[in-house]
Structures are given as structure tokens and as C-alpha cells.
């Protein structure tokens, strides 16, 4: 049987040790996974205005906004430290970081309520309508 039998556990004890970190959602793909000097080059040059944040990233003007996680929800970054060698083995993910808000950045466009990531935050409420218990 294929990998359908294996499960991927979440080590919840790791939540307690997880760091609360700033999280940025960027409007570009960066072909890299690994360390970056985010606070040095992004955070320190960010201008905080009333309605939006602005920053220049690689010569492009980004406009951003903070977005809170929906109520009853927590942001988690799950990490797999030991990849199994086959699909049959069970896997374990650790919670490496937690967040309750994120900053999302648009390229040039001012942040507004039509932004897809803003709308995505409505999903939990819609899901509750679709999945919540129905009365008799």
C-alpha cells in the first residue's frame, strides 16, 4: 500500500518552546530556504504610516499592512527536522515558531480589504458555516 498508511504527527510539546517571531508575506518568490538578515535590512528601513507600511525591497516599493490571525486561531510554523527515507515511515513535525499577526506586502498596490490574503482570513468563518454542527 502506498503512503496513505503513514501519518505525520505534530509534536505539540514543541509549542511551549516555540519562539514568537515576526512573519512577512512577500509578493515575490525567493528561491532560497535559509537564514536572512530580515531585521537588519527590512525591518529597520520600514516606514510606518497610519494606513500602511512602506519599504523598499530590492529597489521595489512594497506597501504592507499587519494582519491578525482570526479569533481562535494561531499562526504556526511547522518544521520537519528529520526527513524519513521512505513514504512508509511516519513523520514528525515540530512547531518551530508561532505568530498571532503577520505583515503582508503588496508590490506598489496599497493594502486593502480586497487583497486575497485578507479575504483568506475569512475562510475560518465560512468553514464554520460549512462544518459547524447543524441543529435538528
Amino acid at each position: 500500500m502506498s503512503g496513505n498508511t503513514s501519518v505525520t504527527r505534530v509534536d505539540v510539546s514543541s509549542v511551549a518552546q516555540a519562539q514568537r517571531v515576526p512573519v512577512h508575506f512577500l509578493p515575490c518568490e525567493i528561491e532560497h530556504n535559509g537564514p536572512a538578515q530580515v531585521s537588519e535590512y527590512l525591518t529597520t528601513t520600514t516606514k510606518d504610516c497610519k494606513l500602511e507600511k512602506t519599504v523598499s525591497f530590492r529597489g521595489r516599493g512594497l506597501k504592507g499592512q499587519e494582519l491578525s490571525c482570526p479569533q481562535g486561531y494561531t499562526g504556526l510554523v511547522l518544521k520537519e527536522t528529520n526527513k524519513p527515507s521512505s513514504d512508509h515511515e511516519d513523520r514528525t513535525l515540530r512547531v518551530s515558531s508561532v505568530f498571532d499577526k503577520l505583515t503582508y506586502w503588496n508590490l506598489e498596490t496599497p493594502p486593502n480589504s480586497d487583497d486575497t490574503v485578507v479575504m483568506a482570513m475569512d475562510w475560518p468563518e465560512l468553514a464554520e458555516a460549512i462544518h459547524g454542527p447543524v441543529e435538528d
Binding site: 512577512h24 512577500l26 515575490c28 518568490e29 530556504n33 530580515v38 531585521s39 515558531s97
Partner: peptide, 14 residues
Amino acid sequence: FHSWFVGQTVQRDG
């Protein structure tokens, strides 16, 4: 075309 900064790291998968 999205990626993440998580703390002081880049996560490519957006």
C-alpha cells in the same frame, strides 16, 4: 510568486 520571511529566515514556499 510569494515567499515568507519567518524571523530571520527565508521560506521559499509561499
